[in-house]
Design a protein around this nucleic acid. Structure first.
Length: 129
DNA sequence: CCTATGACGGATG
DNA sequence: GCATCCGCCATAG
């Protein structure tokens, strides 16, 4: 989904969201990052989760993109346990293979090119606080 | 303030 | 299953 590229042909450039200069202090922004990171770290070994699930569990429904960004940037996070919707890997060639091998090493079962979510999808207890 | 972009998700054909 | 499009949100320029 090269959404970005396709979105170029977006017919409605209207964004019902103005006023972005009123951003809060830096500590407030890092709040989201820490929340998401905490959720990711909650994932036990041998289990996986999706961007949307993590974002929702962190308290940011629809912020799946931010989860991905943080995952790519933040080190020390079990990025390999984070998959896309349906348990599909949304990574590039090398990383995708690396992630798959790593997950398999943790005991995650793969079904074709996707993960067996029915068995290895981790459910956040309580999700939000 | 606007435009472009990204390890996304979901709907539609 | 693949191709397109729309929606959502944050960051960078």
């Amino acid at each position: 989904m090269d959404c970005a590229v396709k979105q170029k042909s977006k017919k409605s450039p209207k964004r019902g969201r103005i006023k972005r200069s009123n951003e809060a202090s830096p500590d407030q922004l890092s709040k989201m990052r820490m929340r998401i990171e905490a959720a990711i770290r909650r994932i036990p070994q041998g289990k996986v989760s999706t961007y949307g699930a993590i974002a929702h569990a962190a308290g940011f429904p629809g912020a799946a993109r931010q989860v991905a960004k943080i995952l790519h940037r933040g080190f020390g996070l079990p990025w390999q346990r984070v998959l896309g919707a349906g348990g599909e890997i949304k990574l590039r060639g090398d990383s995708a293979i690396e992630q798959r091998l790593r997950l398999e090493g943790e005991g995650v079962r793969f079904r074709g090119r996707k993960v067996d979510m029915k068995q290895d999808e981790f459910k956040f207890s309580g999700g939000k606080k």
